[in-house]
Design a protein around this nucleic acid. Structure first.
Lengths: 213, 213
DNA sequence: CGCAGGTGACTGACCAGTCAGTAACATGTA
DNA sequence: TACATGTTACTGACTGGTCAGTCACCTGCG
């Protein structure tokens, strides 16, 4: 298939020049393919085809395969952290409700959007890219942990929750959510084993009951 | 370094020919390296060197790189499932104690032995090897889920636990344990974020309290 | 000697990254 | 309006390095 035909197939009839949306199209294709096959096993030629460009075009926007990889990991998780912080800041009502909202909200993103793919990618490739670990530990994990353990500590202070190690509980709050996302992106949906949404609901209930005073 | 020297470095002074323990040495080396770098990024030459043999020797015991891969995944998880079933069968005492024993026992293996590496490998490579998913779903996950949900159902029957969806709770029981193992094998130990053993202890407590009648 | 249990050197396929070339559009010039 | 000249966005063909898998030969033990 010729270039123009490919572009039309990917974007519909029209102009051929569309610089601005290219990087995002490439990143989206890369998230999907790297999520499926891993970094080493993903061919830049396939990313290019999925994004409707040639392999060489990727090098117009990214310095190298690794550069593209860092870009997709960076862009993939930050919005969620920011959104969660915002939701916590504007929340009114009981802290149990807030925790439930966090679990179900992030849980849904993990199970059904690119976010779960990102988490799986980070886990799978961490050892190959140490900078990735540093970045994620500081920019994503530490922030998320601070936000959630803050909610739990506040609940302990108000007497809504039993006294406990808030940091450990924050980890226990998100670990099943993360695992659910990894599961969906690896083993795939299989309700006969675990139904992801039912599991999230059960987790929210059990976890909050375990915490409640 | 010559062959004999390499072998001595890997195994200490002594005999050079030891057919019987070769496959296990190769598998152990492969688990470590594949766990660190992923399947595609692990060179058979490096596996060979770590096992103290030449690359060609691997082909005396395994048909292909993929064959070795399946062998390591198969050998890696089955003993744990069998051990857990045995522990459940011979257990006397409260079901809460049994659940705690399961969480801490499997949790320790996940965080500190090859088992965690295997789980990480399966999650990372699942999409590349569909047979792997089928195998693990049927031979490992389904059995483990049956065992644990059996314990929970028994607890509901005796009145020790509240009525609930036993299968979902079984998943919630092991998900944090699995995630802890993946974490240790990806991000690595970092007590400032999560101390793996403290987390397991907290999980056992909270989870059982959430379940208790 | 015979042969099980190796080895080291080799090969073919694969793929990241490069580069000379081109189609589509913009701008100036008369 | 008509056409030259420049620019942007992109391509197809190529190259060099890497690695799974093969093969002809080696070596110590019974």
């Amino acid at each position: 298939m010729e270039y123009k035909d490919r572009v039309e197939a990917a974007l519909g009839k029209g102009t051929v020049r569309r610089r601005s949306d290219r990087p995002q199209a490439i990143i989206s294709a890369a998230i999907r393919l790297v999520g499926e096959h891993g970094f080493a096993n993903t061919r830049l030629e396939d990313v290019a085809e999925a994004a409707g460009v040639s392999k060489a075009a990727i090098y117009l926007y990214f310095e190298s395969k690794e550069d593209l990889f860092f870009a997709l990991v960076r862009e993939g998780a930050l919005p969620t952290v920011a959104d969660t912080n915002a939701a916590v800041a504007r929340h009114e009502g009981s802290l149990s409700d807030l925790l439930q909202e966090i679990i179900l909200g992030i849980g849904h993103l993990m199970a059904h959007t690119e976010l779960g793919t990102i988490v799986k990618i980070v886990a799978a490739e961490a050892r190959n890219f140490p900078e990735l670990v540093t970045y994620h530990r500081d920019e994503v994990v530490a922030r998320a942990m601070t936000t959630i353990s803050g909610v739990i500590e506040k609940g302990i202070a108000t007497g809504e929750f039993l006294p406990c190690d808030a940091r450990a509980q924050a980890a226990l709050c998100i670990f099943p959510v993360l695992m659910n996302g990894i599961w969906m992106n690896s083993i795939g949906p299989d309700p006969s084993i675990v139904d992801p949404d039912a599991l999230l609901k059960a987790h929210a209930e059990t976890f909050i009951r375990g915490l409640a005073a």
